[in-house]
Nucleic acid binder design. Sequence first.
DNA 1: GGTACGGGCTAACAGCGTTAGCCTGACGCC
DNA 2: GGCGTCAGGCTAACGCTGTTAGCCCGTACC
Lengths: 201, 201
Amino acid sequence: MGEPTWAAAGAPTTVRNVPMQLTPRGREIVDAARDLLDREGPDALTMRRLAESLGIRAPSLYKHLPDKDALEAAVISLAFEEFGDALAAATEHADDRLWALAVAYRGFALDHPHLYRLMTGRPLRRDLLAPGSEQRGSRALDDATGGDADLGRALWAFAHGMTVLELDDRFPRSADLDAAWRRGVDSFRAGVARPRTGERS
Amino acid sequence: MGEPTWAAAGAPTTVRNVPMQLTPRGREIVDAARDLLDREGPDALTMRRLAESLGIRAPSLYKHLPDKDALEAAVISLAFEEFGDALAAATEHADDRLWALAVAYRGFALDHPHLYRLMTGRPLRRDLLAPGSEQRGSRALDDATGGDADLGRALWAFAHGMTVLELDDRFPRSADLDAAWRRGVDSFRAGVARPRTGERS
DNA sequence: GGTACGGGCTAACAGCGTTAGCCTGACGCC
DNA sequence: GGCGTCAGGCTAACGCTGTTAGCCCGTACC
């Protein structure tokens, strides 16, 4: 056999470390990986278990993907797009966009904890990601803070922190997390209307 | 040989899943693990590498610790205490306690990224932790928010979010993280003086 | 001196990601 | 019809991981 099928279609011999073009079969595998992770968690996402779920053997996966890092990067790219779409849909026609964003952010993570952790739990292999997918995940956040980058980052950090601490069971069971979210979002709200493109909340 | 040495000294046959009393040798091993992790990162913290750094073989470690989870839990317990002490020392005599706390929080994580990630990166095995160590890590934070639990959680989430996003290289390289920290801390500061035991910042 | 035991050792197992090398079936082409 | 190409499977195997079983040696105590 010649070049492996996961290489970019255009100039297969020159590309290195470029986010691959998925073949249809490759896409099936990535979808299966997404579902396996989402349902059973990261320990279940092994090459052998994934292959089994597709009715093939583990080494066959390497005909479609270079390695597990690339597989995870593809799942992450997918997840960023799902995530971004969910946030955009939730905030689009909301009265209180900032709060709607917070609710949607938390909701996605609680619905897909393993996916969210994979997306955010360690340094990103940006060289393996589908181009633009990361931005698509964070676009709604940028919009909601009206172009104020520092505030946007602070708000993102707060939302991510609340989310990951809740997912990891870090707060006391008795904690009123709705109240903490309210408190945080309200604290940031003051800053959001002021600078430049003041948007109604 | 009878009972393994890592079991609690008091009633060795009845305890299950109780945070162990470390023997002196066990403590040496945990210290070595802490240093290995701190210096070389989580991939380096394998039972074989750890044993090698102590001049022994991997199976011998199991004479002192039940398994790797317990080892990591012991390292985490240590790290919580280090972390708590660092925060307490930094905020004790500071003019602006909230800001001093933020600086110390970020500083510890940047100085010990692997340790910080181990402490916070996944659900805590509280059943394996040394009792009280978790509280010792978060005490300074509680103090700084004057007993307002919701605000404390929101502030913690913000600090943790900023920290982990920075460690994971999630912000653009051009981002002014000092400004984002300032922005976040200032947003929360308004709330801190008000409720109950109003403390000067 | 005998016994207990702390603290080391080797050999081995199952599961992990991954590679090398082989085979089969479908397709285009002369 | 025969041939070459190649997508997409396969088995066997390697080195790594955490972990267990079982053995052995030195020290301390009665």
